[in-house]
C-alpha cells in the first residue's frame, strides 16, 4: 500500500498526524510518502492508494489552497478512478467553493469539489463531541474549528456520516462529505485510532485484506468506552455539544 501525506509541515495540527501513525502501525509494509510544499505530489501518477491531508492553521489554508489548486485536475481524475482521499479537520474546508475570513478580511477559492462555502469565525470557535453512524456502524470524534460551513438548499451533497449527537457539517445536516472514495470530515480525534473498526474497513476497502488493525483489542476497548460515554445523554448537558 502506498500512502501519501500532503504538506505535513503545515497540516499537522490537533493530533491529526496520529492518523498516519495508526496506518503505519496497522500496515507496516505500507510505503509512506511525505510531500512538502513546493514539491510535486505523487498521487497524480495514479500510483497512490490513500492520500491524507490534515488540520492546519488558517494561514496554512491560504498556503495549501493554491498549491492544491495546481493539481485540481489530477485530483478530480483520481477521485473518479477511485483513489482514496482522507481530508480531516479544516482541510475539509478546501474541498468547498470558497473560504472567507471576514474578521481578518480575506477570501480564497476552494477546490470546488463540493457545493458548500466556509466562513471562518475567529471569535466563534465550534467545540463539540460527536457521535454518528456510517452504514449503521457508530463513529465517534471531536470537533474544534473556526470553520462555519454553509450548505445551500437544495443540495446534492453525499455526507460522510449521519449525525446522532453533536454538530454535523453545519446545523441540521449530517457530518462531512463523500465523493467516491474521497472523505472530508471535520472530525478530530484523531479519526482513525479513535475508530479502529472504521479504519479496519477502510484499509480492507483499499487493499482487500481484512486483518486486525494495530493493537486492535486496546483500540476497540478505548472506542467502546468512549461510545458508551457518548451514548449517555448526561454528558451532553443542555446543548447538543
Amino acid at each position: 500500500m502506498k500512502i501519501e501525506v500532503l504538506y505535513p509541515e503545515l497540516a499537522c495540527l490537533y493530533g491529526d498526524p496520529g492518523n498516519c501513525l495508526f496506518l503505519r502501525r496497522s500496515r507496516p509494509d505500507a510505503q509512506i510518502i511525505s510531500t512538502t510544499l513546493g514539491t510535486a505530489p505523487a498521487f497524480p501518477s495514479g500510483a497512490v492508494d490513500l492520500v491524507i491531508l490534515g488540520s492546519m492553521t488558517e494561514h496554512g489554508q491560504q498556503v495549501v489552497a493554491p498549491e492544491l489548486a495546481r493539481h485540481a485536475t489530477a485530483l478530480r481524475e483520481q477521485i473518479e478512478r477511485g483513489t482514496h482521499f482522507l481530508f480531516t479537520g479544516n482541510a475539509t474546508d478546501l474541498l468547498g467553493t470558497s473560504v472567507a475570513n471576514p474578521q481578518l478580511g480575506y477570501e480564497f477559492a476552494g477546490l470546488g469539489l463540493f457545493d458548500f462555502t466556509v466562513e471562518l469565525g475567529m471569535r466563534e470557535r465550534i467545540n463539540s463531541k460527536f457521535l454518528g453512524e456510517i452504514d449503521h456502524e457508530p463513529i465517534v470524534g471531536f470537533k474544534s474549528q473556526f470553520s462555519h460551513v454553509r450548505v445551500p438548499e437544495p443540495h446534492k451533497l453525499e455526507f460522510f456520516a449521519s449525525t446522532i449527537r453533536g454538530v454535523g457539517l453545519c446545523a441540521g445536516v449530517d457530518e462531512g462529505v463523500r465523493m467516491n472514495n474521497l472523505i472530508g470530515t471535520h472530525l478530530l480525534g484523531p479519526l482513525l485510532p479513535l475508530n479502529p473498526l472504521f479504519t479496519r474497513r477502510l484499509l480492507c476497502e483499499i487493499d482487500g485484506v481484512d486483518t486486525p488493525v494495530a493493537f486492535e483489542e486496546t483500540a476497540v476497548g478505548a472506542f467502546e468506552a468512549r461510545l458508551a460515554e457518548l451514548r449517555d445523554p448526561r454528558i451532553w448537558g443542555a446543548t447538543a455539544h
Partner: peptide, 12 residues
C-alpha cells in the same frame, strides 16, 4: 467527572 475528554493532544 461529567464528559468525555477530547484526547487529540495525546497524538501531539
Amino acid at each position: 467527572a461529567d464528559s468525555t475528554e477530547n484526547i487529540t493532544w495525546l497524538y501531539d
